[in-house]
Amino acid sequence: MNDYDRDEMMTVAAARMLWDGCVTFVGIGLPSAACNLARLTHAPGLVLIYESGTIGTRPTVLPLSIGDGELAETAACVVPLPDIFSDYLQAGRVDVGFLGAAQIDRFGNLNSTVIGPYAKPKTRLPGAGGATEIAAHARQVFVVMKASPRSFVAVLDFQTSGGHFEGRGKSGARGGGPTVVVTDVGILKPQPGGELALVAVYPGIPIEEARAAVGWPLAVAPQIETIAAPTRNELAALRALKARTEAAHREPVRLPI
């Protein structure tokens, strides 16, 4: 059976973009699933860095938080958090940084700070965390977000992290910015000038659906690729990882008294 849902398709599509030996700055959620799927399938030498300070971590289950004990126990080393941001990320030692956000614009700029005005927000979101400097300094940024007109917007309420913004080349940003945006309807990539265009869709998803999910007139590349459906092997590895994770998170934790 090769039935799969869109989350699985997104996760597999993101995992396939990682290569063996790639140094990856991982976020919680789908990026963490994609990175560990890649590590368990085609990229066993993937180096996973979580911002909590764990480097070369090889978790058997996915963490709920960015600092679960599992990450430290399976890491090659654990360093102080300031080292991660200054000596690894800022120093240019990260190949790929994963980011998500509440809003993205056509140049891959991201908002994870507020909906509405900053001083009196309608919705206060968690904020930047590591995102601003990941967006600046990772050699490439992979954005992973479900597409909807509410999240793929013409104008951001707040710019938390920079994509292909005007002046990026002259700023101190050392990384190349977003090279791909993986959504649940297809894949966008920046064109010359930095604007995102649809370059690939998933099997059975029409281009019109992808365009309707984006809140600006989405450019479409001349050649649209169709991403191959998840293989039996990819699905089995991903589902086993998720099953192990669910079982581990069901284990009751005793109060420490």
């Binding site: 700070t113 900053y118 001083a119 601003t132 400097e133 300094h137 710019q159 101190g172 940003a173």
Partner: peptide, 13 residues
């Protein structure tokens, strides 16, 4: 000091 806060509205606020 850091090479940071690039491409963000944070310093405005």
């Amino acid at each position: 000091v850091l090479r940071g806060y690039i491409g963000t509205d944070l310093p405005k606020h």
